[in-house]
Design a protein around this nucleic acid. Structure first.
Length: 312
DNA sequence: CGATGTCAAGGAATC
DNA sequence: GATTCCTTGACATCG
């Protein structure tokens, strides 16, 4: 079981996740890839085995007006191959999770086309890195547009029109307000698309009639034998509220906390006993710091689970 | 040098 | 129909 974190390193100074200069200053994918190389060295040193790359790794590569950026992925084929080889050699599982503006099921055809361009670019980078089928591009169903059934149908329809290399990389995640795990499972049944089970989203937007464990088991089963599925895991944020004479912490549903609650994570692992192996992408504000802290806590609190799941 | 404004992009809830 | 939230840093410019 690999533990991973998303995009930004907080545990060490000076590591960047992408070339974020503005377009006027000509940012370039090759600069982002140099940053990514340094980041992979840090992952090697800390023993971290999973990482979500920035959606903006290739700056403006799909921007409709800034066409001067559009060739950067192909220009960087050799650098992408080198980075991919480095990740493979140290056993790091890489992925993308495009921004909230990527909506494959958009009612507006131009929004859908821009989304397809983004998905295509990210899938292409994974291909040029030479990564296996576990390196995926994660997306949500998208908007509801006042008609969920129709909007789900549109997702399936657009998914089927995607170029095969994109379809091969794309996986689907349940979200916290619109599409439950049950909804994305129905899409899986129609398309075969693999599913990323988001545990907090399932708690915030539960599937009627399905226990958490049953949902998790179904999600894992959408991945072919020989591929390790992955899930998203996070702890809900709390905020201070003021009453007449006290200040109290209360949970804010669907917002991510700084760190992972180790006891809740241990509960998840115990409830997952007997299920197939899977990887866990941690989504929390403290990023790699939260991962390292969780790993310490697990070694101290549940060394049996660390061994049984071979957590790294 | 520190403070402040700005960045490509959509959807949904609220009023 | 307009506003605000989601959520976030860090670049770039201003004083």
């Amino acid at each position: 079981m690999k533990l991973g974190f998303a995009v930004k390193v907080l545990g060490r100074e000076g590591l960047k996740s992408n070339d974020s200069r503005r377009w006027q200053n000509s940012p370039h994918l090759s600069v982002s890839l140099a940053y990514l190389r340094d980041l992979l060295v840090y992952l090697r040193e800390t023993g971290i085995k999973m990482y979500r790359m920035s959606s903006d790794l290739a700056p403006y590569v799909t921007h409709p007006e800034l066409t001067q950026f559009h060739g950067q992925i192909e220009e960087c084929a050799e650098e992408l191959a080198a980075i991919g080889q480095m990740a493979r050699e140290q056993g790091v599982r890489l992925s993308f999770h495009p921004s909230a503006f990527v909506l494959l099921n958009a009612a507006d055809e131009t929004v859908a086309q821009k989304s397809i361009a983004d998905l295509t670019a990210q899938a292409r980078m994974l291909d040029l890195m030479g990564l296996g089928p576990e390196a995926v591009v994660v997306t949500h169903v998208g908007g509801r547009y006042g008609n969920k059934a129709e909007s789900l149908r549109r997702f399936v329809e657009r998914y089927r029109t995607l170029p095969e290399p994109v379809r091969r990389r794309l996986v689907l995640e349940n979200d916290e307000r619109s599409y439950t795990f049950g909804d994305v499972y129905a899409v899986h049944e129609q398309t075969g698309i693999r599913l990323v089970f988001d545990q907090l989203h399932e708690l915030c937007n539960p599937t009627p009639g399905l226990t958490l464990r049953a949902a998790l088991e179904r999600a894992l089963a959408t991945w072919p034998a020989g591929q390790t599925p992955k899930i998203h895991y996070s702890t809900t944020r709390t905020a201070m509220i003021e009453t007449a004479d006290k200040r109290l912490q209360m949970p804010l549903l669907s917002q991510h906390a700084d760190l992972i609650d180790p006891f809740a994570f241990i509960d998840l692992l115990r409830s997952a006993k007997g299920l197939r192996d899977f990887d866990v992408m941690l989504e929390c504000k403290a990023k790699d710091i939260a991962l390292l802290r969780l790993r310490e806590h697990l070694h101290r609190l549940a060394p049996d689970l660390v061994q049984a799941w071979r957590i790294e």
